[in-house]
Design a binder for these strands. Sequence first.
DNA 1: TTGATTGCAAACGGTTTGCATGGGA
DNA 2: TCCCATGCAAACCGTTTGCAATCAA
Lengths: 139, 139
Amino acid sequence: MDRLSLRAVEEMASGEGFKMTPQRRVIVNYLEKATNHPTADDVFYAVNKKFPMTSRATVYNTLNWLKTVGMLRERFEGEKMRYDPNCERHHHFICHACGLVEDINSELIEELDAFKLPGKHKVESYEVTVRGVCRNCRK
Amino acid sequence: MDRLSLRAVEEMASGEGFKMTPQRRVIVNYLEKATNHPTADDVFYAVNKKFPMTSRATVYNTLNWLKTVGMLRERFEGEKMRYDPNCERHHHFICHACGLVEDINSELIEELDAFKLPGKHKVESYEVTVRGVCRNCRK
DNA sequence: TTGATTGCAAACGGTTTGCATGGGA
DNA sequence: TCCCATGCAAACCGTTTGCAATCAA
């Protein structure tokens, strides 16, 4: 699975007996182009610009649905849950001044296959979180 | 700052006008030897074995105090906040079957100084999160 | 038509806060 | 003594749930 897209979601929905509602289309459309790991509240306000009566239950319902089918990932950076529409392998940069979260394509970080973990755990994946100050906050 | 210790906390407390209470001593003593990033509830139950009337407010108060003075770190793995008494630079292994969190000494992972981040962010640190199945869950 | 989805409101669970009492230094 | 810390209970806030009404297929 790569990046969340409206087409992929509609295909999945019709294939699995789920229904596409206007609210869901707006939510997916928002997530599709979101770059900063939106919170549920970000999604709530975005969808309410188009459909002012949309409830938080619908937002969470849709987010959990997409999560369950593997098209959206949860991340816990900061104090709220955040949603990541990028399901490709990647890393993150986080600005500790403004909270910006930015994806780092995984080719930009050298491979780390050769660490010698203690204790015979089975390693399946790893991700790198880079912290610092983003270009805007440096000023 | 390295690893949380009772001596260091007592020194800091007397130096800064804070008070050491029996509850705080038990909490610090528990954190000192905790290896699995305990939750506030873990701390609550541990301290209540020795002082059965200890409130959650006291637990959170103490955890936030230690966090504020930089002797304890918060991490968000799973659905609750977790507290990490290890303030040295290190990485983590997380088992997605049982939730185990284990520290990885930073020498065990090769240096990553040379990534070329896009966008002129100022990089200050990075941490690696390794995911997989721990030795116990492999059985 | 029909069952999945919606909106509302109440419930839930982790964390914080206000306040009177208690106890270190 | 003085003021910080404690315990209790209520408040808070993000998320989940129950249910009747609604709507996509």
